[in-house]
Amino acid sequence: MLLSPSGHGPILSFDFPLSRSAALARLAAFLPHAGEAYARHRNEERGQGQHHAVSRLSAALRRRLISEAEVADAVLRMHGGLAAKFIGELYWRTYWKGWLEQHPSIWEDWRAACDRWVEQGLPEGYSAAVEGRTGIDAFDAWARELRETGYLHNWARMQFASIWIFTLRLPWELGAAFTFRHFVDADPASNTLSWRWVAGLHTSGKAYLADAERTRVQTDGRFDPRGLAVTADVPRETCKAELGRIRTPTAPDPHLPSLLLLTPEDLSLETEATLKALDVRRVVACRAHCSGAADLAAVADGLQRGSTHWGVRALWVDDMEAVLAVAQDEGVAQIVTGYAPVGPVADSLAAYREGARIAEHRRAWDVEAWPYCGKGYFALAQHIPALLGSAALESLPA
């Protein structure tokens, strides 16, 4: 399907950390810049291949090749309170995850909207937008960069979404599908909810409007976008997302023989203390859970580490039916995997939770933070110092 949220674009020319060793090396290289330098320069967009003021760890964090807790701990040890801005940005990822867990209908509604657009036909201007032929220099360059590299600077992502919605007047759902398909760090929560935030749907009355002068400044004069919208015509939504409870998974029983299922949701389970001594008989990964070359590379790295840690064979299979067959052959009592937040992997596992004992390990980082993520970001931000046990951090502003 043209707009399916699965199947990201090709990786052509960007160095993504898609193994745990590469992620740790990237973190080490970035650490000296995670304090004052990050706060000063994080929004400077210097062009394709020049995004050195940000960590560029997003592809690894998305798959938890390296964890948020590891990154936060390293940054705070080096910079203390001077890393407040970076820590705040790190927690935005957590906020989006926790918010979508409590409003899963947003994900379902978005997928349904994409299906409707496929059925009724794409709107005028869509092809020009995704091919970078709108005549808006910054937007067109970012569209090409995204297709060629799978990446955009976070500040550019907001401008891109704003121009798509308010200047080109295209449906936000189609924009979210386009970026989700191409971002190598595509995350169901961060991608979908960031588009809604820009559109003015996440926080009532608060939309993000791209500004031509600010774009010229932040890109050091590389772009001079003309004809940008000066008012935000916020789209209408017919359904209101109701706040629900965070799903409670079946927890792994450390004493049961287990099949370990690795997915792109968590690829460093061997680092979790409660799982280190798990009785693992086989480590498997499912190709159906991978959305492109980046997922395949990262999962392969996770399989190798898991196989080494537990001293068992690693195996690729095609789908969940094959996973269940391996579990039966091995005679295991449970299939253990990392917790699957709202998204394609959770959709895949949902159909099998009743018929098989699928136990999901949820990290302490999520357990502790997600209860504060049901409303606005500030409700979480004010708890960040306590969550990290860091007296050096003051309450972080929204």
Rank of each mutant, 00 (worst) to 15 (best):
residue 86 F to E: 05
residue 43 N to R: 09
residue 299 V to D: 01
residue 239 C to S: 11
residue 260 L to S: 11
residue 53 A to K: 01
residue 113 A to F: 07
residue 266 D to Y: 12
residue 186 A to W: 01
residue 246 I to V: 15
residue 360 E to S: 09
residue 187 D to G: 08
residue 377 Y to C: 02
residue 307 S to I: 04
residue 55 S to G: 15
residue 194 S to C: 04
residue 136 I to E: 02
residue 58 S to T: 11
residue 99 W to T: 00
residue 358 I to D: 05
residue 76 L to Y: 14
residue 67 S to H: 08
residue 191 N to C: 11
residue 210 A to D: 02
residue 207 A to K: 15
residue 192 T to Y: 08
residue 97 K to L: 06
residue 393 L to I: 02
residue 388 L to V: 01
residue 226 R to V: 14
residue 164 W to D: 00
residue 158 M to H: 10
residue 344 P to E: 07
residue 371 P to E: 10
residue 13 S to L: 05
residue 77 R to K: 15
residue 2 L to I: 15
residue 176 A to P: 01
residue 357 R to F: 03
residue 138 A to I: 04
residue 51 H to M: 04
residue 261 L to H: 01
residue 26 R to M: 11
residue 93 R to W: 12
residue 111 R to S: 11
residue 338 G to W: 05
residue 280 V to M: 06
residue 288 A to L: 09
residue 52 H to A: 11
residue 127 S to P: 00
residue 310 W to Y: 12
residue 40 R to C: 13
residue 341 P to N: 06
residue 256 L to H: 12
residue 9 G to D: 03
residue 190 S to I: 13
residue 131 E to Q: 14
residue 16 F to V: 08
residue 17 P to K: 05
residue 7 G to F: 09
residue 234 V to P: 00
residue 160 F to T: 06
residue 162 S to K: 07
residue 142 W to S: 09
residue 67 S to F: 03
residue 130 V to E: 01
residue 103 H to N: 12
residue 382 Q to I: 11
residue 146 L to Q: 09
residue 270 E to G: 04
residue 279 D to I: 02
residue 238 T to W: 04
residue 347 D to R: 11
residue 272 E to H: 11
residue 345 V to M: 01
residue 345 V to K: 03
residue 232 A to S: 08
residue 332 V to Y: 09
residue 121 G to F: 14
residue 40 R to N: 13
residue 122 L to C: 13
residue 218 Q to V: 08
residue 28 A to I: 00
residue 11 I to C: 06
residue 162 S to W: 08
residue 265 E to H: 10
residue 241 A to H: 05
residue 15 D to E: 14
residue 380 L to G: 06
residue 290 C to S: 03
residue 179 T to R: 03
residue 365 W to Y: 10
residue 232 A to T: 02
residue 44 E to A: 14
residue 172 W to A: 15
residue 131 E to I: 00
residue 361 H to D: 07
residue 148 E to R: 12
residue 44 E to Q: 12
residue 232 A to M: 05
residue 189 A to G: 09
residue 273 A to I: 08
residue 238 T to K: 07
residue 61 L to D: 09
